[in-house]
Design a protein around this nucleic acid. Structure first.
Length: 150
DNA sequence: TACGGAATGA
DNA sequence: TCATTCCGTA
């Protein structure tokens, strides 16, 4: 059985603030999915709260994440553990919301990686409240799937 | 099923 | 550091 996954070159996600890992980071991957219409049935922004999104198809998100990281054994149990670490990291006191609903402050995540993007507080028109920064993020290159035996 | 500690990896 | 893996607990 072949496991199809994507391999990305190191430079694709090279950032200043992550000296150890040069791999794609989970928050970036989540953002990528959220930006694309085709994944609207898998993961989508929640109306209202800033930075809040729902995972509608946990298994599919895990599958896509595993494919991207070349981790055939990835599942939602492991993915959600990583998400919980992210939530703790930015707001330890955050209420665990509804099932499959997460709220990230993407400003805080984007800022250290892309300091050239001007950031203002939430709620003001024409700023991050509308996720205008998404168009400023580096475009993620696409590659042909790499076939890996398992 | 979801949470989170602990060990380990790259 | 940021996940990944495993697993005990509720």
């Amino acid at each position: 059985k072949k496991f199809h996954c994507y391999h990305f070159p190191e430079w694709a996600y090279k950032t200043e603030s992550s000296p150890g890992s040069r791999q794609i980071q989970l928050w970036h991957f989540i953002l990528e999915l959220l930006q694309k219409e085709e994944f609207r049935h898998v993961i989508a922004w929640q109306q209202g709260e800033y930075g809040e999104f729902v995972i509608k198809d946990p298994d599919e998100v895990a599958r896509l994440w595993g494919r991207r990281k070349c981790k055939p054994q990835m599942n939602y149990d492991k993915l959600s553990r990583a998400l919980r670490y992210l939530l703790q990291q930015e707001d330890p006191a955050q209420d665990q919301g509804q099932r499959f609903t997460y709220k990230f402050n993407f400003n805080k995540l984007v800022m250290p990686n892309y300091p050239f993007i001007n950031i203002r507080p939430n709620g003001e028109p024409g700023n991050f409240g509308n996720f205008g920064f998404l168009s400023l993020l580096p475009k993620i290159p696409t590659f042909s799937p790499q076939k890996i035996s398992i």
